[in-house]
Amino acid sequence: MTEQSRGLTLAWRVGAVMLAAAVVAGCGSASKPKPTPLESFTPSQTVRTAWTARVGAAEGPLSLAVSGSTVAMASTDGQVVSLEVETGRERWRAAVGSKLSAGVGSDGRFAAVVTSDNELVTLDEGKPLWRDRLPGRVITAPLVAGERVFIQSVDRSVRAYDALDGRWLWNFARPGVDPLSLAQNGLLTAFRDTLVIGTSSRMIGLDPTKGSVRFEVSLGLPRGTNEVERLSDLVGPAARSDDDLCVRSFQLAVGCVNMNRGTMRWSRPQSGHQGLAADDQVVVGADSADRLTAWRADSGDTAWRVDRFQHRGLSTPVIWSGLIAVGDSEGQLHFLSPQDGRTVARLSLDAPLSGAPRVAAGHLLVATRAGTLYALRAQ
């Protein structure tokens, strides 16, 4: 391939990512429906703020990385911070020196981010360890596990590095996939000793030491007359329900895959672009109009559906301390009952969420676009 053709390929991929972002954003705000007004309710649950920390603003999707009793957070301007979940005490803080396009991934010791110049930066307890120039753009946060760093590019290829010395280990790419990809975190996670990735509407389990395929499951067949209509990438993060991983395929479906057998437990059609929440009882997610649905985890049957959050720009939800927590585009954090979806509490944040909420050491951790990390406790 010539340098000119490489440039054209990269330009197409970047343009595809921008186009996918427009799809998610609704292609402008002029015709966007008005959010449903906030409901009046009598709180029956108390949620309090245990501590907060300031890191820096997040202009795009930046993920929290939880490992044991620590949480790592990054800002768009390249600040990376690790804190103790129980107290909020800062363990270390580092400046990468460049704006970030993806991050942060961490196993508690190593942390990895990707800059807007396509450079993978790995830290060891906050100290710069090594850097590597990547061949393509990265939006999905790196995964750090087993002293390895895994990267998923917008072309859906996955690269593995040795966390200690930056040695390149292997590359996985599925040929023949659509060139258009979704401009948000994709599926890149671990389940026991299997690396789990998303390629279009397919969940693929890989051997993390060699990059060889262990299983492959499709959430459905994309339909449409063009690349935008066929866009069906799996949206991260996945949610765990016992031995299942439950995930959304953009515009297509939600479903749960049994990881012991590498087979589909159930799938249901639903158009949406945010991830799911799950426990051993229910799987919860919002559709493209922000109607929130709960499915029974074992069968996929609908348990309940609520439409009082329509067009409020719901985030990825999370199940925590017997509650469902979900943010909206006005910076409100709603807490619902998993049994029937009624609202039991609400908390106002300083800005909308910058990524999916996380749970660690009994705390609910939510980071906002303004750069504040909240650690919440239920009473």
Score class of each variant (00 low, 15 high):
F250L: 12
F250K: 11
Q251S: 14
Q251C: 12
Q251M: 15
L252N: 07
L252T: 10
A253F: 02
A253G: 05
A253E: 03
A253V: 09
A253T: 12
V254I: 13
V254T: 13
V254S: 10
V254Y: 01
G255K: 02
G255A: 00
G255N: 06
G255H: 04
G255C: 06
G255F: 02
G255L: 04
C256R: 10
C256L: 03
C256Y: 10
C256S: 11
C256K: 06
C256E: 09
C256M: 05
C256D: 15
V257F: 05
V257R: 06
V257I: 11
N258D: 10
N258G: 12
N258M: 04
N258A: 11
M259Y: 02
M259F: 10
M259P: 11
N260H: 14
N260K: 14
N260E: 13
N260Y: 12
R261M: 08
R261Y: 12
R261I: 07
R261S: 06
G262L: 04
G262W: 03
G262N: 14
T263Q: 11
T263R: 15
T263M: 12
T263G: 03
T263F: 06
T263A: 13
T263I: 15
T263H: 04
M264F: 02
M264P: 07
M264D: 00
M264E: 07
R265S: 15
W266T: 06
W266A: 01
W266Y: 10
S267R: 11
R268F: 08
R268M: 10
R268A: 13
P269H: 09
P269K: 10
P269R: 15
P269F: 12
P269W: 08
P269S: 08
Q270M: 13
Q270F: 14
S271N: 14
S271I: 08
S271F: 02
S271W: 05
S271Q: 15
G272F: 04
G272K: 07
G272Q: 02
G272R: 05
H273D: 10
H273M: 07
H273P: 06
H273R: 15
H273I: 09
H273W: 09
H273F: 15
Q274E: 07
Q274R: 09
G275T: 01
G275A: 13
G275L: 00
L276V: 00
L276A: 02
L276W: 01
L276P: 01
A277E: 04
A277W: 00
A277S: 12
A277P: 00
A277H: 01
A278D: 05
A278S: 08
A278N: 05
A278T: 08
A278F: 12
A278V: 07
D279V: 02
D279L: 11
D279M: 05
D280F: 10
D280G: 15
D280I: 13
Q281L: 14
Q281G: 01
Q281A: 14
Q281H: 10
Q281K: 08
V282L: 01
V282H: 06
V282T: 14
V282P: 01
V283L: 03
V283G: 03
V283W: 00
V283E: 06
V283C: 06
V283R: 03
V283P: 01
V283I: 09
V284A: 06
V284L: 07
V284W: 02
